[in-house]
Design a protein around this nucleic acid. Structure first.
Lengths: 247, 247
DNA sequence: TATAATTGTCTATATCAATAGACAAGTTTT
DNA sequence: AAAACTTGTCTATTGATATAGACAATTATA
């Protein structure tokens, strides 16, 4: 964190209990509240944040609900260990490889696929004419049973006809592209933003209202520069940090 | 955006008017509500989001306050043109160069500096012993008079004694490092996360409560791999997107 | 065993957030 | 000029949020 103990804002449209819950999450992430240790008592937290004890209790209740804390009557409230995974983004960005060593089990599920006309954004990314047929794959990435990403990928329907079936079978974008003669591909561009999770994010990623998602919009190309995939991915900020690796 | 029109969540700790304000911002960013055009009338928006017209009015009032919209009685509510800047992050990440062409005026202000013992995180990043003296520079980046970043940078106090004065004089990290014989430096690592703006962010970056900030934690090194700077930067998500460029 | 410390539950009250309806004020269209 | 449409203001009501205080239940400590 930078600077002073940050305080909270009233009349902001964000309830105090949620702001405090977010700050507790941040303190845990930064290491101010170590894992497996007890949080300061409710009264102390109330003093620190300048609110009533019951408001702090609401924040704690939300985090208990999210599985971040465990409260024990008479003893205290404890931080459960739950590290954020670090997802590397670089020239060769691959889901399963990237989380190797951080999660024992990881896979991608194909949620849905369809053929549709490319909108302007997708068409520009893939170098196609607006309205050209593209295949859209909706996928969810999981690590140790926890959803860690939700992505939509678009592919030229003429060149990659049947990639939806390949994806359903292999569970891997890389493997699916290999069937079309793509042995290697590179990340050409990535644009990053962040926003509050919307209703779809909450459902897809199993988040609580108010959660934040990181959003990447990326284009993958063959080694000789042909665009092959346009994608938009959402990552739950509470479970994933993006590590931008050297290329 | 992915999928359906996202709806809003009740009892989430985030007021409906703020969620709607965020969605309107998102719709503007995505192009669903084009710049300089009128928003749908309040009654239509209320229908779309499933809330009362007054709730929509609260959201619009907040965005008018933020300078995103302009409401005109009898005519409509209009989207002011205010594009998000795209801040490139790559091997050579330089503030002023990065925003060249997107903003006519851009500069960094040195807000504060101090000498302090390195905490574990900073020490690890710089390859120093925990507790070693480091110089901290607190800076704010502005583009066309609008704050677009707030950063803390740490430097080895022994090697870079006086860099605070150099920074105050030149207004450039790159120029200050040049005085210490650093002609070139590279971005070794960048870790990215997002969270709600805290009180300090609100003040430093001139944001409204509930805003989101992108946070990068990065290490810069000399071409031969010596770490010279550890930094943590915050970017207002509503004004900046991070473009991860090839290295 | 007694005391202190901590979380859990209850009641009560005040303020903010959201809904509902009516009508005024301004602009555009007919 | 009149009608239709849009934003602005007002009153009233309900539910969620936040504060305040008291005391119970459980655990750790003196």
């Amino acid at each position: 964190m930078i600077g002073q103990p940050s305080s909270i804002e009233r009349r902001s449209g964000v309830a105090l209990w949620r702001q405090i819950a977010d700050q507790i999450l941040h303190s845990i992430a930064v290491g101010d509240f170590p894992e497996n240790a007890a949080l300061p008592p409710e009264i102390a937290l109330a003093g620190r944040y300048g609110v009533n004890r019951h408001t702090v209790r609401s924040a704690i209740a939300a985090l208990v609900q999210e599985g971040v804390l465990r409260a024990e009557q008479g003893r205290g409230t404890f931080v459960l260990s739950r590290k954020r995974l670090s997802y590397p983004i670089g020239a060769r960005t691959r889901f399963s490889e990237g989380l190797q060593g951080q999660a024992s089990e990881r896979h991608i599920t194909l949620l849905a696929s369809s053929v549709e006309p490319a909108n302007r954004r997708v068409a520009e990314g893939l170098g196609l004419a607006t309205g050209a047929d593209v295949i859209r794959l909706e996928t969810r990435g999981e690590a140790d049973g926890m959803p860690v990403s939700r992505a939509a990928g678009w592919f030229d329907a003429r060149r990659f006809a049947g990639i939806d079936a390949a994806m359903a079978e292999t569970g891997s974008i890389t493997a699916s592209l290999a069937r079309f003669g793509i042995d290697d591909y590179l990340r050409q561009s990535t644009v990053l933003s962040a926003r509050h999770a919307d209703a779809a994010d909450l459902a897809d990623l199993d988040l609580q209202p108010g959660a934040i998602v990181l959003v990447t919009v990326a284009v993958n190309v063959t080694p000789d520069g042909q665009p092959i995939q346009f994608s938009e991915s959402r990552f739950p900020a509470e479970r994933i940090e993006l590590k931008l690796s050297a290329l």
